[in-house]
Nucleic acid binder design. Structure first.
Lengths: 345, 345
DNA sequence: AATTAGCACTCGAAGCTAGTGAGTGCTAAC
DNA sequence: GTTAGCACTCACTAGCTTCGAGTGCTAATT
C-alpha cells in the first residue's frame, strides 16, 4: 500500500489533533477538521489502512486512533526537511550581562522550559582538552595561597591552599614566572614527571610548594572534567500532560531527571552523532534512556568558540509540538554561539 | 482534661504506628502494640478523650485515628527536649577533599535526601557583609584582564574584562597595589564616589581601567548576594508517601521545590529565629510555604566560621521520622562546622 | 470504481448497588 | 475504673448496568 496524498493529509490531521487534545481522535472529528471534506466513512477506511501500515494505533477496539511512534517519526521527518524560514527574534535579551557560564546555562534551561512547557536539560560544556593558559599564585592570608588557574576557553578555577613555610613576595613572583613559563599551553596529561622534576629543580627550596600547587591544579581540572554538570528545569511540566503524569511513570521520569548520572548517556549519545545540524529526535522507544520511553526527546548540540560543546535537551510527551521545539532549539543554538563570541569572558 | 501518663503512652503509640504504616490506626492495634495491656475498649475511651483534646483526628467516622498537627507538635516537642545522647559517626568522610563550597552543598543535599528518604534543600551561605579582602588583576590575553576578587570568608569571584588600551606589566603591578591599598577591608557600600575619585586620580592615565574594574567587582558581588542559591535533592522521594503523591499536590510541591524563589521565605524565616539550636520544626499549616501545608518541614541553620550562615531543610510527610531527622541534622551541623574549620579554603 | 449513508456492534468510562470489615460508641457487667 | 459485647457507621471493593464515542461492514449512490 502506498502513502498517497489523502492518507498523508489525514495522518497529519490525526497527529495535530492528538497533539492539541491528548485524546484518541475519531473519524468524525477528522472529517470536520480537514478542509476538503470527505465523509467520516471514507476517513474510517483510510484510517483502517493507516493502522494496517503502522502509522496509527487504536488503544482499544472502540476508541479513536492515536499516532504510533512510526507516525510521529513520519511527521517529524517531514518537519525536519522544511527550511526554518524565520530564525525568529526570541529572547536575545536573556543572553546578555551574564558573568558566569553556569549561570547562563541555568537560566537558559529555565527559559526553555518555560517557553516550551516541557522539561529542559542542558549539559555544561565538555572541553576537548584542557590546555593551561595561565596560573597565578597570590597570598591572601599569612599562611594561605590562592591559586587561580585559567584554562583555554577562559575557564577559571580557584583553589586556596595552606602553605606551611615562609614565602617572600619576591619568591612568590618567581614561582609565578616559573609556573607559567613551564606549564603554559600544556594539557593536563602533558604535565609528566619530567616536567615536574625540572620545575622542582628550578624552584629550589620551594620544591614542595610546586608539588602542592600542581596537585591542586590537577585535582581541580580532573574534578571538572569528571562529572559533567547537567542542569534541568521545568521537570514538573510533565504534570501538564495526563498521559505522562500517571504516578508511577512520573515518579520514574522525575527521578531520572534528578539523578543526572542517568542523563549522561543521552547527552553523550547525542554528541556522538554529529549529523548535519546536530539535532536529534528520539521518539518513544528510540530514546536511550529507559524512563523516557513514553516521551519524546529532542537534543541539540550547542557550540561556542574554541571547540567547547554541550547539549541541550527537551523532554515532553510524544505529542509535543515538534515544530515549535525544533525552531526554538535552532534559534537558541545560533544565539548562544553569537552571544559568546560577542562577550567572551 | 489532663494528659496523664497513659494518654501520653497511647498518643505516642498512635503516632509511631502511623509513621510506620501511613494508615489510620485503630484501638485494637494499639491494644496489641502497647506493652502494659489495656483492652481495646479502654484504649477507645482514651482515644476519644485524645480526640476531644485535639491531639488526634478521625478521617471519617468508622476509621482509626491519625495524629493531628497538634499531636505531632506534642511529639516533636518531647523529642526536642531529650538530649541528643549520641552525636553519631555519620559520613564524616563525605565532607572532605571538596574544593568548592557549591559542590559540598550539592553533595550534602543529596546525602541528606538519600539518608532520610525525604526531600532535602540547602541554601548557599549568606554573607553578612561582603568585605573585600584581596583583588588581583592579571593579563590573560593581549586585550583581556582577569579580575580575581576575594571576599572575607574566602569567597572567590572571577571576571574577565576587555580593555581597549595598552597597559604595561609595570602599570599592571601598580594598579594592583593601588586597588589593594585603597579597597582592602571595605564593604561594597563603602566604596563611594570619594574613594573612587581618589583612586582615579592616583591611577593617572588608566583611570578608566579603574572604573571598569570597580564596576565589574560591584556587579559580581551584587549578583552573588542578590539571588541566594538554593540546592534541592531527593524531591522525588515524596512519591514514597502515598498521602503526598496525589497528583495535584505532588505537582505543586515539586514545582515549588524547583522554583527556588518560593523557598527563600522558608530559608529566611528560619534564619531570623535563632532560638537555641537554630532548629525549627514546621508541622502542616505551620509552614510558611503554601505548597507544604500537607508536609512537615524541619530547618536547621549551619554556620561555618566568620559568620557565614545558611539553612538546611528537610521536607517530608507529617509522619516523618522526626527523631532521625533531628539527629541527622544536628550531626551534620556540627560536622559541617568542624570540617570547614579544619580545611578552610 | 470510489464514496457515502446507515446500522449493528464493541468496549472503556462512569454510575449504581450490595456486601465486607475495620473500627467506633455505648451499655452493662465485672 | 476496666472490660466484654453488640449495634452501628462508612470507606472500599466487586460486580453490574448504562452510556456513548467510535468502529467495521454492507448496501445504496454518484
Amino acid at each position: 500500500m502506498e502513502l498517497d496524498e489523502r492518507k498523508v493529509t489525514i495522518l497529519k490531521a490525526i497527529i495535530k489533533n492528538y497533539m492539541d487534545t491528548g485524546e484518541p481522535v475519531g473519524s468524525r472529528t477528522i472529517s470536520k477538521y480537514v478542509e476538503s471534506r470527505w465523509s467520516s466513512a471514507t476517513i474510517r477506511n483510510e484510517m483502517s489502512d493507516l493502522e494496517e501500515m503502522g502509522y496509527i494505533i487504536q488503544p482499544h477496539t472502540s476508541a479513536g486512533r492515536i499516532p504510533s511512534d512510526k507516525g510521529y517519526r513520519f511527521y517529524v521527518d517531514q518537519i525536519m526537511q522544511e527550511k526554518d524560514s524565520e530564525v525568529a527574534e526570541i529572547q536575545e535579551l536573556m543572553i546578555q550581562r551574564v558573568d558566569r557560564l553556569e549561570s547562563v546555562l541555568k537560566k537558559l534551561a529555565k527559559l526553555l522550559a518555560r517557553d516550551t512547557n516541557y522539561a529542559a536539560l542542558i549539559s555544561g560544556p565538555r572541553y576537548h582538552e584542557n590546555k593551561l593558559k595561565f596560573i597565578q599564585l597570590s597570598r591572601v592570608d599569612a599562611a594561605k595561597l590562592l591559586i587561580v588557574t585559567v584554562l583555554e576557553g577562559n575557564l577559571i578555577k580557584n583553589t586556596i591552599v595552606d602553605v606551611h613555610e615562609e614565602i617572600s613576595d619576591e619568591e612568590l613572583l618567581n614561582l609565578n614566572i616559573l609556573l607559567n613559563s613551564n606549564l603554559n599551553g600544556l594539557t593536563i596529561e602533558e604535565i609528566n614527571l619530567a616536567v615536574i622534576a625540572r620545575m622542582k629543580e628550578q624552584a629550589g627550596s620551594h620544591g614542595n610548594v610546586v608539588d602542592l600547587v600542581l596537585n591542586q591544579v590537577a585535582e581541580v581540572i580532573r574534578a571538572d572534567s569528571e562529572d559533567l554538570q547537567i542542569y534541568t528545569s521545568g521537570a514538573t511540566n510533565i504534570f501538564k500532560y495526563p498521559e505522562l503524569s500517571d504516578n508511577q511513570k512520573a515518579s520514574e521520569l522525575l527521578s531520572t531527571l534528578e539523578h543526572t548520572e542517568e542523563l549522561q548517556e543521552l547527552v553523550n549519545g547525542s554528541l556522538g552523532e554529529e549529523k548535519g545540524t546536530g539535532i536529534q529526535v528520539y521518539i518513544g522507544e528510540e530514546s536511550p534512556v529507559q524512563a523516557m520511553r513514553d516521551c519524546s526527546v529532542i537534543t541539540a548540540n550547542y557550540e561556542m568558540g574554541e571547540g567547547i560543546r554541550g547539549t541541550i535537551g527537551i523532554i515532553g510527551p510524544k505529542r509535543m509540538d515538534y515544530e515549535k521545539v525544533l525552531k526554538t532549539l535552532r534559534t537558541v543554538m545560533t544565539q548562544l554561539d553569537a552571544a559568546f563570541k560577542k562577550e567572551e569572558r
